[in-house]
Deep mutational scan, measured.
Amino acid sequence: IDAAQIVDEALEQGITLFVVNNRLQYETSRDSIPTELLNKWKQHKQELIDFLNQLD
């Protein structure tokens, strides 16, 4: 699994991931984030931050 897949998966569930001051953040209108997704974010945090920083 790679960062792009995780970002896409989040988007499919209505969650936008982004980076502020090198910290992973998210925006969503959902009430809660699925635990499975949160765990993936934690496991791949640095990859996600690097990936999202490249997009900007």
Rank of each mutant, 00 (worst) to 15 (best):
residue 25 Q to E: 13
residue 23 R to M: 15
residue 35 T to V: 14
residue 45 K to R: 12
residue 48 L to S: 00
residue 56 D to Q: 15
residue 23 R to F: 11
residue 56 D to Y: 13
residue 6 I to H: 02
residue 38 L to C: 08
residue 21 N to F: 07
residue 21 N to R: 06
residue 44 H to D: 01
residue 46 Q to L: 08
residue 12 E to S: 14
residue 55 L to G: 09
residue 12 E to F: 08
residue 7 V to K: 02
residue 12 E to I: 09
residue 26 Y to K: 01
residue 5 Q to T: 10
residue 51 F to L: 04
residue 15 I to W: 03
residue 3 A to W: 07
residue 37 L to C: 05
residue 14 G to C: 07
residue 9 E to I: 03
residue 53 N to Y: 08
residue 47 E to Q: 11
residue 12 E to M: 13
residue 10 A to M: 03
residue 35 T to L: 13
residue 6 I to R: 01
residue 36 E to W: 12
residue 17 L to W: 02
residue 18 F to M: 09
residue 56 D to T: 14
residue 21 N to T: 04
residue 42 K to L: 13
residue 19 V to N: 02
residue 24 L to H: 00
residue 44 H to R: 05
residue 23 R to I: 15
residue 55 L to E: 07
residue 19 V to Q: 03
residue 50 D to Y: 10
residue 31 D to E: 12
residue 3 A to P: 14
residue 55 L to T: 10
residue 49 I to S: 02
residue 12 E to D: 09
residue 40 K to L: 13
residue 12 E to V: 09
residue 32 S to R: 09
residue 46 Q to P: 04
residue 30 R to C: 06
residue 18 F to R: 13
residue 39 N to A: 14
residue 30 R to T: 06
residue 52 L to Q: 00
residue 53 N to G: 08
residue 15 I to S: 01
residue 9 E to K: 03
residue 21 N to W: 05
residue 5 Q to G: 13
residue 33 I to A: 04
residue 2 D to Q: 12
residue 20 V to H: 12
residue 52 L to H: 01
residue 26 Y to A: 05
residue 51 F to R: 02
residue 37 L to I: 05
residue 11 L to Y: 09
residue 4 A to K: 14
residue 46 Q to I: 07
residue 5 Q to A: 14
residue 34 P to M: 03
residue 22 N to Y: 06
residue 31 D to S: 10
residue 39 N to Y: 11
residue 1 I to V: 13
residue 33 I to V: 12
residue 1 I to H: 09
residue 44 H to F: 14
residue 19 V to M: 04
residue 28 T to G: 05
residue 53 N to I: 13
residue 9 E to H: 05
residue 17 L to P: 00
residue 48 L to I: 15
residue 33 I to S: 01
residue 1 I to M: 12
residue 8 D to M: 15
residue 54 Q to A: 14
residue 50 D to E: 11
residue 8 D to G: 13
residue 37 L to M: 09
residue 33 I to N: 02
residue 3 A to K: 02
residue 50 D to P: 03
residue 22 N to Q: 06
residue 20 V to N: 07
residue 7 V to R: 04
residue 39 N to S: 09
residue 48 L to C: 02
residue 35 T to A: 13
residue 43 Q to W: 07
residue 18 F to C: 12
residue 25 Q to N: 09
residue 15 I to E: 00
residue 15 I to D: 00
residue 45 K to F: 14
residue 10 A to K: 01
residue 30 R to S: 06
residue 56 D to I: 11
residue 39 N to C: 09
residue 30 R to M: 09
residue 22 N to R: 05
residue 27 E to R: 15
residue 15 I to V: 10
residue 17 L to K: 00
residue 16 T to C: 15
residue 45 K to E: 15
residue 37 L to G: 01
residue 13 Q to T: 04
residue 16 T to L: 14
residue 36 E to I: 08
residue 9 E to G: 03
residue 20 V to S: 09
residue 42 K to P: 01
residue 11 L to E: 07
residue 5 Q to L: 10
residue 19 V to P: 02
residue 53 N to A: 09
residue 12 E to Q: 14
residue 27 E to M: 14
residue 53 N to P: 03
residue 12 E to W: 08
residue 22 N to V: 04
residue 33 I to G: 01
residue 23 R to A: 14
residue 24 L to S: 02
residue 56 D to L: 11
residue 12 E to L: 11
residue 16 T to E: 06
residue 32 S to K: 09
residue 31 D to Q: 10
residue 3 A to G: 04
residue 46 Q to N: 10
residue 10 A to T: 04
residue 11 L to M: 11
